[in-house]
Simulated assay, not measured.
Amino acid sequence: MSSSLLAIIPARGGSKGLPRKNILPVGGKPLIAWTITAALEASSIDEVILSSDDDETIKLASEWGCNAPFVRPASLASDTASSIDVVLHALGMCPGFDYVALLQPTSPLRTSLDIDDAFKILNVSGANSCVSMCLAEESPFWMYRLRENMQLESLFPNQNVSRRQDLPPVYVLNGAIYIARVSWLLQSRSFISEDCVAHIMPRERSLDIDTADDFEELKRVIGDRKR
């Protein structure tokens, strides 16, 4: 029995860290086009839609082949609006899908194979959701809180590891892929749960664009790829 997967690309017009970041040109196309292209090339996705409040973003996304069936309400385009509320609104506007993927345009280096592999992991595992992760750059096993008297308090006091190579691997969300069963997501209102499974991506494809420095790093990475 086949299952249908809807991909939602959220891209509001406002951004404080890097103004208009979703439509800034990089590598010969707007930032959002990197995610649109990956989504359209993913064999697991049945439909790719945009959720945006911004006319220019909607126009650009449409030019790159992404469907924009609605305009996102202003109440869901503020700094305080949550991603899950944006997803649930989109599902209400575009019902009938078994699975939903949230693909943020600020993760431009995620590939169509990443999306397909994450969806495969979800189905093979029988879990309700799958998220993309990468190895953490800094291990929390060497992190501390500070008491009021400025004394150190280890986050993991029972772990006495002195060599980096002996540290257990730890992973962080990279924000590139969130996939879930729609029926479950409507009840849980979260992509993360105890039975959530992971698709591991390398750090070099896990760049998240939030600031001007991030954008400059993306330009460097894309430039290096072309050499």
Rank of each mutant, 00 (worst) to 15 (best):
109 L>T: 10
115 I>W: 07
171 Y>P: 00
72 R>A: 15
38 A>Y: 08
111 T>G: 08
40 L>V: 11
214 D>G: 05
206 S>P: 08
69 P>D: 01
120 K>T: 15
122 L>C: 05
91 L>S: 02
171 Y>E: 03
218 L>Q: 06
179 I>F: 03
211 T>K: 14
175 G>F: 15
224 D>R: 14
150 M>Q: 02
210 D>R: 13
118 A>R: 04
188 S>I: 03
115 I>V: 15
204 E>T: 13
156 F>M: 06
161 V>N: 11
187 Q>P: 04
65 G>M: 05
183 S>F: 01
125 S>C: 03
16 K>H: 11
201 M>F: 13
197 V>G: 03
42 A>E: 06
34 W>E: 06
114 D>F: 09
154 S>A: 14
112 S>H: 12
223 G>L: 07
117 D>R: 15
44 S>R: 05
142 W>G: 11
5 L>G: 00
176 A>H: 00
185 L>D: 00
99 Y>H: 14
37 T>R: 08
33 A>I: 03
89 H>G: 02
5 L>S: 05
120 K>E: 05
51 S>T: 04
149 N>A: 04
171 Y>H: 12
218 L>T: 00
64 W>T: 01
7 A>Y: 13
222 I>Q: 05
215 F>V: 09
183 S>Y: 01
191 F>H: 01
87 V>N: 01
49 I>K: 03
166 D>C: 07
134 C>S: 12
54 D>Y: 04
97 F>S: 10
128 N>P: 01
196 C>N: 02
203 R>D: 07
105 P>I: 08
156 F>G: 10
107 S>N: 14
185 L>M: 00
195 D>N: 12
72 R>G: 02
193 S>T: 10
102 L>N: 12
102 L>T: 06
175 G>R: 15
143 M>T: 13
54 D>K: 08
25 P>R: 04
203 R>V: 08
1 M>T: 15
185 L>C: 05
161 V>L: 14
25 P>Y: 04
199 H>F: 15
102 L>V: 06
116 D>E: 10
162 S>A: 07
16 K>L: 12
129 S>G: 05
53 D>F: 03
81 A>E: 10
27 G>S: 01
118 A>S: 07
189 R>Q: 12
83 S>D: 10
160 N>E: 14
41 E>S: 14
224 D>C: 12
34 W>T: 02
52 S>H: 09
